[in-house]
Nucleic acid binder design. Structure first.
Lengths: 258, 258
DNA sequence: CGGAACATTGATGGATATCAATCTGAGTGG
DNA sequence: CCACTCAGATTGATATCCATCAATGTTCCG
């Protein structure tokens, strides 16, 4: 209730701006190759970074959201329900844009975003971004591809909630997180750091915290994972993928081979 | 399995192009006011309409989807699951774009779209649309607002599946459809034509056809609706909205009042 | 050292799936 | 025009999954 809304402290960051946009540029160029001029246009949108603490709300429903992307840490985008429950709709990872409604001047968001860890985020100048989009086709294409990939993740999330058991849904979610981190070299072997608490996972999968515990336990007993917060280790990715019908195609950027 | 994939017959439509884009132009200008020049730019993208029959697949996973919007009829966008089940992720109504992945040259879709009714769809020239987007800010804004509103609908769909009982989820879905049709004057009083079969609704809500029947029955007994396919009548919108926590804010285009 | 959020486990209840039977209406071919 | 077939709709009986209630243990933080 009495949640803190303000950034805990503005970091008087002395790290050069080139590092601050690094995460976003890396992400976008993984979607579409960017020229030096493209990168320069993005840099022009760069603003000073802001820090948030675990459990802070970055935005709330009804806000005109700021144009922010995550630099480091995990955040959860969710819909608060009238009965106090929450339904998480997106896990925000470094490089993710907090809420794209920020691209529309005057638009309001219907979601809230809270920090699952301490967060460093980076603001972007809307005007400079609009310039970059309209004058730099590569940037526009990369951003649009990002929209499509996020939509794909959301669609698979719908399928998890609607058509999978809790064990399948959890396995599928974890494999998605694994795939995303593998791609950017953010895993040590088959070990991944997942800072989510079990109630967070419950809000993601639409189940109770108690049942999250039982579901993790069942995957553990099936020999698929080891999980000791915050460390997650995959023991048999192939069998796990088969178990829940995970196919990473929906996370891939490029046009198909055909 | 031997589903028909091809349009049943190309309509050698003699209706003027001005009518064919009517649905899309009306939709977009409800998002952002369009000047005559904006409308003219959209007309330049217009192609000949295509008809599909009920149960036809318009696209399938892995396709490079065509740039199409629905002119008349209802279609369902869904993810086919490995076990043969389907999870519907979007109800496509007149004015909806079938799959926005079509805006990205070479992109593949992960969804399928099948016709719930006979459909008239209208193709758009990608090049002309890109021109319209890059040269006409009103068009770009309207299209982007459409993206945001569709995302909002998808987010609420996630919340329906994750955090609502089947009766609440069904009530919420029906109220969403009611709201969308009210706005465009497509209802007679509180009566709406819903061409979906109960198995379709099951694929939407992630429940079995048998349970759809029981759920409809419970809303009927609660005095909330009458439903006799394809006719749906709302008996007590206020109580129904309260029952399922429906708030149409997520369907509204404009910036909030504040 | 005390408290609060998190995690685990057991017992029980409720919601939805599954299996099965029947009924209706619409399209189809004779 | 009628018989047939099939998809859809309804209802009942039973099984499964997950929620709820409750107790306990644990970790972390003030």
């Amino acid at each position: 209730m009495g949640g803190s809304r303000e950034p805990s402290h503005k970091t008087g960051m002395n790290s050069p701006s080139s590092f601050d946009t690094g995460v976003l540029v890396r992400r976008l160029s993984s979607y579409s190759p960017l020229s030096d001029a493209d990168v320069a246009a993005l840099k022009r949108a760069d603003r000073s970074p802001v820090s948030y603490s675990r459990q802070d709300d970055i935005i709330r429903p009804g806000d005109a959201p700021p144009l922010l992307f995550i630099e480091s840490g995990w955040a959860l985008r969710y819909l608060p329900m009238t009965d106090g429950d929450q339904q998480v709709v997106q896990v925000l990872l470094p490089g993710d844009i907090v809420d794209r409604a920020a691209f529309l001047p005057g638009a309001r968001t219907i979601t809230a975003v809270k920090c699952a860890t301490d967060i460093r985020a980076c603001a972007l100048c809307p005007r400079a971004m609009h310039e970059a989009v309209s004058e730099r086709p590569n940037v526009a294409r990369a951003l649009w591809l990002g929209v499509m990939l996020d939509e794909n993740r959301l669609l698979e999330h719908v399928a998890r909630l609607g058509r999978r058991s809790s064990a399948e849904a959890l396995a599928h979610l974890l494999l998605e997180l694994r795939h995303l981190h593998k791609r950017i070299g953010a895993m040590e072997g088959e070990t991944l750091t997942v800072p989510l608490a079990q109630p967070d996972i419950g809000d993601l999968l639409g189940i109770t915290p108690v049942h999250v515990s039982r579901t993790i336990s069942s995957l553990r007993h099936a020999g698929l994972i080891e999980m000791d917060r915050p460390t997650l280790r995959f023991l048999d990715v192939k069998r796990m993928s088969l178990f829940c019908g995970f196919d990473p195609a929906y996370l891939e950027a490029g046009p198909g081979p055909a």
